[in-house]
């Protein structure tokens, strides 16, 4: 089973991790979604919260240098600069189990 977190802003992937205050926690097994929960994200303790929830993959928008430093050394696989509809991103991630470039939506516009 893999636990995935996607930072959200409405039905879109939140545009930057340091400003995201919600995320979708999805547990996936054999290509099927087992559970999904929307949760509040406190940016100050974000990494610890996600690690505590057993998150293995984090799909998010833009990363500041500080976010990069915060996540360095973490066991969470981060797929940053993702842009798009949350459901499409999730569907494509599950379907592809792919790297950042292959993940849905599209990469940042610059």
């Amino acid at each position: 089973m893999t636990t995935i977190a996607i930072t959200t802003f409405g039905n879109r992937v939140s545009a930057r991790l340091d400003c995201a205050d919600c995320f979708l926690l999805v547990k996936v097994h054999d290509g099927k979604v087992l559970t999904r929960t929307s949760m509040h994200l406190d940016p100050r303790g974000g990494r610890q919260v996600l690690e505590g929830l057993g998150v293995r993959v984090l799909i998010c928008g833009g990363l500041t240098e500080q976010c990069v430093r915060m996540l360095r050394g973490s066991r969470i696989r981060v797929i940053p600069w993702v842009q798009g509809d949350v459901e499409e991103v999730l569907t494509q991630f599950i379907a592809l189990h792919a790297s950042a470039g292959a993940v849905a939506g599209k990469e940042g516009t610059s």
């Binding site: 802003f9 879109r12 939140s14 545009a15 400003c19 928008g61 516009t109």
Partner: peptide, 11 residues
Amino acid sequence: FEVLRANICER
């Protein structure tokens, strides 16, 4: 908000 990514966009 996806182009500018300002720190106030989402709040």
